[in-house]
Structure formats: C-alpha cells, structure tokens
C-alpha cells in the first residue's frame, strides 16, 4: 500500500495572540515559529500506522519554501518513508485550488492508494484542500475520519456526519481522507528519529517534475485585510475582586431565577 500525507506548517499559536499584530488598519500574522498543523499530525500517525501494519510505503508532501522542510522532517522522524517538498505556484502561495493542483501532480506522479490530509488547517480553518484535491483527481473523499482501517481489499472509514453521529463506510482505493482529532494519538518524535533523518536530503519537485501544466483560467478570491473581531460584544464583564465578582454573578443568577432563595 502507498499512502501519501499532505502537510501544512502553521504559526505556533500557543495561547494568546502575540503572533497577530495590529499594523495600521489591519492585523498581520507575524510569526517565525512554525509548527505542524495539529490535524496533520493525526494524518501522519495514521499513515505510519497503516504502513507498519500492512507494509508498503508512505510519503509526506508539503508545498512551500525551504521552511516547510521542518514539518517534512518531523514526519520523517515519526516514521514516514519519504518526503517531497513541492514548489509553490508562483501566482499565489495559498490559494486552495492552486495548492490542490500541486498536490494532484504529486499524487499522479507517485500514485498512492490513499491520501490523508488534516481535516483543516488551524490558521485558515478552511478545510478545502483535501476535498478539492479529491474532486480534481475524481477520487472519493471522506472528511473528518475518526477511524481508518484496511481490510485487505478496501478501506473502512469511520467519520463524523451530522449531529454527533458517525458513519462507518467501506471504500475502495484510491481515496482521499481527512483526519479529525480523535483518530489517533500521534506518537512522539524521538531523538533517534530526528537523528536518523537529520542528513536526509528532501527533494524539491517543481511543476515539470510532476508533469503539471499551470492551472488555466483560474479566478481567485481577492485577499483583503484581516482584523480583530469585536470582542466581549455581548457579555457583561464583572469587575472587582474575585469575591465581589462572585457576589455579582450570584446576584445575576438569582435575577434569572436560578436560585429560589
């Protein structure tokens, strides 16, 4: 079995919003600390696990400049067999259609049986790339997988549908799946793993390497500015010492008829 995972590096958000900076009228993302998108971690773990269990080969791909080698190396250290860095489309680095186009090139060149992506990226929150990729490849797509098995002939995918329900489905290869939290617990990156892959060259593939022609006639959405949402618009924020706040909240709850006395 051949499994390809698609990775994205995202700003290390941590807690707070220090990486988001107000510059004039807009908010800019200022970050030099990149990490693997949380959902992509589930995707890597799933790929490595499937290959450990059934044999075959796994590959991680990420689109971007040299900086993305960080997340690719992380995937290698976790046990992915190969990694490719894909050269971004010079027109626009983060347009979902263009990203999917490059990934399609990688898929048609490497010919995986399964592609796993994270359900979405924690920065954009879009969740578009995996589905667009599937649509372009004309492969079936299942989003939000919480279980993924191979029964020797088909994949058994458990995934989230409406209202807290999940469905279990059987789907043949090739297929695109997006990983939801709860799919697995990604393994740690081990020191031996880091060492093992430290000297590995990560090849860069451009459009020609992937036999891709540039995307024609694609109209992009025009990226305008970011701003902070109006905050605390609704709530009455209680003031004073903790003890005073508590008395007030009890008062409010009483007004709402929460307490009878």
């Amino acid at each position: 079995m051949k499994v390809m995972v698609c990775l994205k590096q995202v700003p290390d958000a941590g807690e707070g919003e220090a990486f988001l900076q107000q510059v004039g009228e807009e908010v800019q993302v200022a970050c030099d600390d990149w990490v693997l998108n949380e959902w992509d971690g589930f995707a890597v773990e799933a790929a490595v696990h499937l290959i450990e269990e059934h044999g075959g080969e796994s590959m991680a791909v990420s689109i971007g400049d040299e900086a993305v080698e960080g997340v690719l190396r992380r995937a290698l250290a976790m046990g992915v067999d190969q990694a490719w860095r894909l050269q971004p489309d010079s027109n626009s680095a983060d347009d979902s259609m263009r990203l999917a186009h490059s990934l399609m090139g990688a898929a048609l060149t490497w010919k995986p049986d399964l592609i796993i992506c994270g359900a979405m990226a924690s920065d954009s929150g879009n969740g578009l790339v995996p589905g667009i990729l599937a649509g372009k490849l004309q492969w079936p797509f299942v989003a939000l997988a919480t279980g993924l098995k191979w029964d020797g002939k088909s994949f058994l995918v458990r995934h989230e549908i409406h209202q807290g329900m999940e469905s279990l489905e059987k789907i043949g290869a090739p297929l695109v799946v997006s990983a939801q939290s709860g799919l697995n617990q990604p393994r740690y990156v081990s020191i031996r793993g880091i060492r093992r892959v430290a000297k590995r060259e990560i090849p860069m593939k451009n459009m020609a390497d992937l036999s891709l022609s540039p995307l024609q006639n694609h109209v992009e959405l025009v990226d305008l500015k970011r701003r902070f949402p109006p905050s605390g618009a609704h709530a009455e924020i209680l003031q004073g010492s903790p003890q005073e706040q508590i008395s007030q909240v009890i008062q409010r709850m009483r007004e709402q008829g929460v307490f009878t006395s």
Partner: peptide, 14 residues
C-alpha cells in the same frame, strides 16, 4: 540550528 530546534521541541512535547 534546525536539528537542535527539533530536539528541543521533541523534548518539550514529550
């Protein structure tokens, strides 16, 4: 260097 950052991060995650 990059490798050292990875090691630091691995230790932190662990």
């Amino acid at each position: 260097n990059k490798e050292q950052k990875e090691i630091q991060k691995a230790a932190r995650d662990f």
